[in-house]
């Protein structure tokens, strides 16, 4: 695992996993968005955003994730959200993010 601008990232072949921080707000969110876009541009076919440390995702966090989804969609990259807590998963479902990403344990 390496870290880029405080964002932990793991690359295994064409799968890149970006680890979100405990609170997905503007400052941390924009770093994650930049890192995800960097991975997409680098040619990963599957982008995993890992939420194991994330307790809260606010509206800014949702907007950031939509940016990631949009960038992935334009590049044909699959997006997976992993280790999402129950509240956040419910939020993603309610808002329709799950139409665009897979949720994985």
């Amino acid at each position: 695992m390496n870290t880029n601008l405080d964002i932990p990232v793991r690359s295994e072949g064409e799968i890149a996993t970006v680890f979100a921080s405990d609170y997905l707000n503007k400052i941390s969110g924009e770093k994650i968005e930049r890192e995800c876009k960097r991975q997409i541009d680098a040619g990963c076919t599957t982008l995993v955003v890992n939420f194991k440390d994330t307790e809260i995702v606010n509206s800014i966090g949702v907007s950031i994730l939509l940016g990631v989804i949009d960038a992935a969609s334009n590049n044909g990259t699959e997006v997976i959200f992993s280790e999402v807590n129950e509240d956040t998963e419910q939020l993603f479902e309610m808002l329709g993010l799950t139409n665009h990403v897979k949720i994985q344990e």
Partner: peptide, 15 residues
């Protein structure tokens, strides 16, 4: 910039 984030994120508007 932040207000746009909040507006889009509140209802999950793509753009």
């Amino acid at each position: 910039h932040t207000s746009l984030h909040l507006l889009l994120g509140s209802l999950a508007i793509m753009r």
